[in-house]
Design a protein around this nucleic acid. Sequence first.
DNA 1: GCCGTTTTCGGCCCGACTGTTTTCAGTCG
Length: 574
Amino acid sequence: MDKHIVADILNEIGFYLEWKGESPFKTRAYENGARAVESLDEDLKTLVQENRLGSVRGIGKALEQKISELVTTGHLKYYEDLKAEFPSGLFELLKIPGLGIKKVRTLYDTLGITTIGELEYACRENRLVDLPGFGEKTQQNIMKGIAHARTGADRYLLSEAGEVAYSILKKGKDCPQVQSMQIAGSLRRSRETVKDIDILASSDQPEDVMKYFVSLPDVADVTGQGETKTSVRLKEGIAMDLRVVSPEQYPYALQHFTGSREHNTRLRHLAKSMDLKMNEYGLFRGEDEERISCANEEEIYQALGMSYIPPELREDTGEIEAALEGRLPMLVESRDLQGIFHLHSRYSDGSDTLAALAEGTHRQGYHYMGISDHSRSAYYARGLKEEDVIRQQEEIDKLNAEWEDFHIFRGIESDILPDGSLDYPDGFLNRFDFVIASVHSNFRMDRSSMTNRILRVLDNPHTTILGHPTGRLLLSRDGYELDMERILEKAAEKEIVIEINANPHRLDLDWRWCKKAKEMGIRLMINPDAHSVSEISNTGFGTTVARKGWCEKKDILNCLDTAGMKEFLEKAKV
DNA sequence: GCCGTTTTCGGCCCGACTGTTTTCAGTCG
């Protein structure tokens, strides 16, 4: 049973307990437990098997027992008994924005509503307006919420949201009353998908700034407007919050609105233990709340006795402890990358020529690229037959002779066949400087078959890099079933490089696993999987994944210079 | 129900905004 389902069930239990009038702290414990499970960076099943669940913060004895039962048997009697006391559908109602437990309860007690369908019908019949705590506006907002829930678009790719956010930011900087402005929230932390856009501004005239914003042509609907905060839905469908604070509040607010919630909660606890109070307006000491003056985020973290934590790390996965002990990693940066692999040319399904890709890669400041078109079994992508490979390699050699300060490595993205073998005979595979092995077919194998399939390819001496290791497509397709721990162990043993595929739809390896891989001494590689010159810039998304995964320059293979890369590949071939 | 340099009891982060109220409960992040 996957952790998201477990987390959902814990949340649902919290909901029922609250309904039944249990202590709010008890219900919160279930919600905290759900969040803890959701943000696990280890396999839940493994944790259960090794009896280590209880060491996770937020999971105590009672939750450990319940989660274990759920994971090992697929059922939880406590949950099923509880659920049986309530009509089904009730919990789903919470997904409608504006509806919390109290309002759901009113809907049920007065109108007997238990499903979203019934709720919609009741709104149409205008039956919500007279309920206590409800009114005309509430009913309208619920209808809007139902309509938006129907579109199914509740999350957006980092790349999509980022593009929208930057365009808004650019326009916002034209507003004369704005002093500073920045993207905050999950977007600043480079989460792979985001729910909304948070923008923070400082100004002495907040009202003018907000007026300016709501009048932008990008705004479809204003969903909330107060003194310091305005919420809108943009034409693209995504929600955006704008917060405006005074210039001296700005650093604290930036820290606060960057989150994550879990990170901030821990910081506030820590602050409290130091007799400090922390909120979005400042850091205050003692009874009289004397403000501790901080000019930027660095100074806020310093005041809390720790080193500066970059936004990507603020997920409460150990960064606070590391910052307190001064052992945060020096995160890799885009400029550390010396070259990129995994580019597709017109030889297979790319849209640009080898020469154009080389030009484009060089123009973006890289010193080498590794071409890896699809292998022969990839019919859908015009995979290269042996004679195509030979032709392509002749062209690469010619280009390499022309370039002095740029090198093209000769590679292939070989399908991992269902039995775990590579897509060309051994003798032929020697022609390549490197081989990226990727799964492109038969996704639906069971967990153990898929794991064995990949383990086998990692044992193949021709395999250099494991490409997009889980095959996931964010927001549309889950990765295939896989025992990632075993894959990583094998990769560490065989010194196989693991790709961080930077295509914004993939971002695969996931940052949570990157951290693990790094700890196991595995080298990672940030590759754009570019099918055109314009997609080379996707590499930046991969760098943010590496940063979220605590990676330093030394962890990322393509931080090697050209000579270093040549040496590495030669050694890997032996 | 969880947690602990305030450890096995007694706490549990903090504030904005809406829409309904007539001083605030509910929801959200």
